[in-house]
Design a binder for these strands. Structure first.
Lengths: 216, 216
DNA sequence: AGGCTTGCACGTACGGCGTACGTACGTCAA
DNA sequence: TTGACGTACGTACGCCGTACGTGCAAGCCT
């Protein structure tokens, strides 16, 4: 039986699989090799080292984003769709999300979403400076949101439903936290994310206008 | 010479010191013990394990935030100040920032900023639901911003000024990225952060009004 | 065909990691 | 005095990433 030959692609896929099954901490070269039924050092014929392998994982996950961009739609809708598409990472690869956002990638994989977003913003009438600024703000918001989303749920194991345990907070020290504990504990990720995206879109909608009417 | 006795506080301080000097990867129980001139296993009399120690580091850094809240100021100014105060983490402890944002803390250390922010938002007239939503949005934005800020500069060693290397991007595939390469490469963190904060504040300023005038 | 180069799979080995466990020693209560 | 207790410490185990050397199979040149 001529087992399919080892390759960077197969190794990265095995790594992603392992991360999603057992979490990022479970990743080791030995473990990946075992999962592939292969000697540990064989991996190094296709991947320079573990760090590069993890970069490969991040790139692979990132490049799986499906952008269905409709050039005829209103630019606000296109921004909405792109933000949501990016967030799909957190659903398709929850345990890998941390990797994706915590490594800066100097490859084309990370550039495609940037390209799309910039094109959309430019077509909406933003000049270069504003497009870049707005893009950076969106990325910051999305990354922060994903981080909370996967951070609140590092593994689905513990039945710890409340992230703010009422027993732990002293009502005298934290009256607001105490009063709002039910709200802080429950968390509708979809609604929260959309709330922020809508607010951001609404904010940048009035931005160019304000600039045109400015003193300059 | 009666060397000061070991304590959780001293251990956490040594860990922070080590992280800021040599990065989070350099942290090991052996290394911390060596820096303290102490046996490795002595640490375990004051800290249950490495993970708890890193949580301690995150809490310590977080609790060093200086909130100078002026109750008489306009609520927008108070929000501004709190956002900036939080960002001070990235300046005071750049290499530890990743730790702070990547661990969810179930202690009071992380609750103080939350309490302050909720109080401010409530005093501005937001109801509980909106206050929590707005707070979450701000946290997401700030966390994402800090992450970029310290991610772009993991160590100050490499003379890699341009995060978008013009040689790497194919102008045909990425026309916008190519055209805006100079803007994408340069990065005024202070200005970018403030730009986002102002936009967010401006967005939430009109939020309650819109709600009151809404169909409901 | 015969020999040579090349590339991949693999085993071994080294230094470092987190930490379980047993021990020795100081201090304080009874 | 004696015992219990808390703290510092050494040793040891099973992991980790990876440098290095070996062997084998396929492709190439003559």
């Amino acid at each position: 039986m001529p087992t399919e030959p080892l390759s960077r692609t197969r190794i990265v896929a095995a790594a992603i699989d392992l991360i999603e099954r057992e979490g990022a901490d479970a990743v080791s070269m030995r473990r990946i090799a075992a999962d592939l039924g292969v000697g540990v050092m064989s991996l190094y014929n296709h991947v320079p080292n573990k760090d590069a392998l993890l970069n490969g994982v991040a790139e692979a996950v990132l490049s799986q984003i499906e952008f269905t961009d409709d050039p005829d739609a209103h630019w606000t809708d296109r921004v909405r769709m792109q933000a949501r598409a990016f967030r799909q990472i957190a659903h398709g690869h929850p345990r890998s999300t941390m990797l994706v956002v915590s490594r800066q990638l100097h490859s084309n994989a990370g550039l495609l979403p940037v390209e799309r977003a910039l094109a959309t913003l430019r077509s909406a009438g933003f000049d270069g400076v504003d497009a870049v600024r707005v893009l950076r703000m969106f990325i910051a918001y999305i990354v922060g949101s994903l981080l909370r989303e996967v951070g609140v749920t590092p593994t689905f194991a513990p039945p710890r439903q409340h992230m703010v345990n009422p027993d732990d907070v002293d009502p005298a020290l934290f009256p607001e936290v105490n009063a709002l504990a039910p709200l802080l504990s429950s968390c509708d990720h979809d609604a929260d994310f959309d709330f922020g995206v809508e607010l951001l879109i609404q904010a940048i909608t009035v931005l160019p206008k304000r600039k045109r009417e400015g003193t300059r």
